[in-house]
Lab assay of single mutants.
Amino acid sequence: MEVRTIKVFTTVDNINLHTQVVDMSMTYGQQFGPTYLDGADVTKIKPHNSHEGKTFYVLPNDDTLRVEAFEYYHTTDPSFLGRYMSALNHTKKWKYPQVNGLTSIKWADNNCYLATALLTLQQIELKFNPPALQDAYYRARAGEAANFCALILAYCNKTVGELGDVRETMSYLFQHANLDSCKRVLNVVCKTCGQQQTTLKGVEAVMYMGTLSYEQFKKGVQIPCTCGKQATKYLVQQESPFVMMSAPPAQYELKHGTFTCASEYTGNYQCGHYKHITSKETLYCIDGALLTKSSEYKGPITDVFYKENSYTTTIK
């Protein structure tokens, strides 16, 4: 009895394709271990004539594949690729409408935090270190965002349907971005203890939790000093293409032309909904596939993004 075979390709990165001759009487799992086709788990399936010449994702289970996976995804987590594939199996079914010149995501599976993050990423200057993220990001900007969303979920250790947080998501993504040249110098002034300067680099240099107003941050924000008295913390120097200011959701007025974009969060910790506000020729609110415009805006804002380049204080 002759062994019926077909020729397929296996890959971990969709760049390096490895030619395989597979036995049609055995499952993919018996031949390769966990195997995925377009995100779908085909591990328990036997090869079919229609699979001839198709590319299958496999887990990096030998040295060659491990090197290829690390170079593309910059992670050695053995569960990463499987999590990416199972997320992709959902995100490829989502709709990605162009809204006001940006790629958004039609609401499904509690994905409003991903839509808000995706919209924000198209408006701030950011370059990702893992080629996987950078490639998928370019495709997302062009309207094909399924891979990018699935990668975000995998890097953030999230599953489809789980509630997510924009600030946490951005923080994970910033860790995989090139923020080497970003720098922030802060000064804390206390009447009792004097003053202390701190220099922050990388992710810490672009994120701040405690106030939404970048102007206020430049002037000074009140913080408790270690001595128990009130101290003032203010920005001395900022070198970065953008800054992200966050605070627990509270009524906040966004003035046209003073910011790049913002995240609105309605609801409580267990259950809520994100919308995205962007400042173009007027203010726009993007909620999944829905767009509304207004000249002014007041609502429960939790993150505001500002364009920056270089700032030095005039406070002496």
Rank of each mutant, 00 (worst) to 15 (best):
E2Y: 10
R4K: 15
I6S: 08
V8M: 10
F9K: 11
T11V: 04
V12Q: 09
V12A: 09
N16R: 14
H18I: 04
M24Y: 09
M24A: 15
S25C: 15
M26T: 15
T27H: 11
T35L: 13
L37F: 13
D38Y: 09
G39T: 12
G39M: 09
D41T: 11
T43M: 06
K44P: 12
K44F: 12
K46F: 12
H51G: 06
H51E: 11
K54C: 15
F56I: 08
Y57T: 09
P60N: 10
N61P: 12
D62V: 07
T64V: 14
E68K: 11
A69L: 12
Y72N: 10
Y73G: 06
H74Q: 13
H74K: 09
H74G: 11
S79Q: 11
F80Y: 03
R83Y: 03
M85F: 03
S86H: 09
L88C: 09
H90L: 10
T91K: 07
K93T: 13
W94L: 00
K95A: 13
Y96H: 04
Y96T: 05
P97F: 05
P97S: 01
P97D: 11
V99F: 15
N100K: 14
G101A: 04
L102C: 03
I105P: 08
K106G: 14
W107N: 02
A108C: 15
N111S: 08
T120S: 12
T120W: 09
L121F: 07
Q123R: 06
E125G: 09
P131D: 04
L133A: 00
D135Q: 09
A136H: 09
A136S: 09
Y137D: 01
Y138W: 14
R141E: 11
R141P: 03
A142P: 04
C149E: 07
L151M: 07
L151R: 05
N157F: 06
N157P: 01
T159C: 13
E162I: 05
L163Y: 15
L163Q: 07
G164N: 05
V166K: 00
V166P: 03
M170F: 09
M170N: 02
L179K: 04
D180H: 11
S181A: 12
K183V: 11
K183P: 07
V185T: 11
V185K: 08
L186C: 10
L186I: 15
N187Y: 06
V188D: 00
V189N: 11
C190M: 04
C190P: 04
T192D: 12
T198P: 00
T199R: 08
T199F: 05
L200A: 08
G202T: 01
A205E: 00
V206F: 04
G210H: 00
T211Q: 08
E215G: 00
E215V: 04
K219N: 12
G220F: 02
C225M: 02
T226Q: 14
G228C: 06
Q230R: 10
T232R: 09
K233M: 15
Y234Q: 07
Y234T: 09
E239M: 07
E239H: 09
M244G: 04
M245G: 00
S246W: 01
A247K: 09
A247M: 08
Q251W: 10
E253T: 14
L254C: 02
K255F: 06
K255L: 08
K255H: 09
T258S: 08
F259I: 02
N268R: 06
H273M: 02
Y274V: 05
I277S: 00
I277H: 00
S279G: 03
T282P: 01
Y284H: 06
C285W: 08
C285T: 13
D287F: 04
A289K: 00
L290E: 15
L290C: 12
T292I: 08
S294G: 05
E296L: 11
E296F: 13
E296R: 09
G299K: 03
T302Y: 00
T302V: 07
K307C: 13
N309T: 15
S310A: 11
Y311A: 05
T313Q: 14
K316G: 15
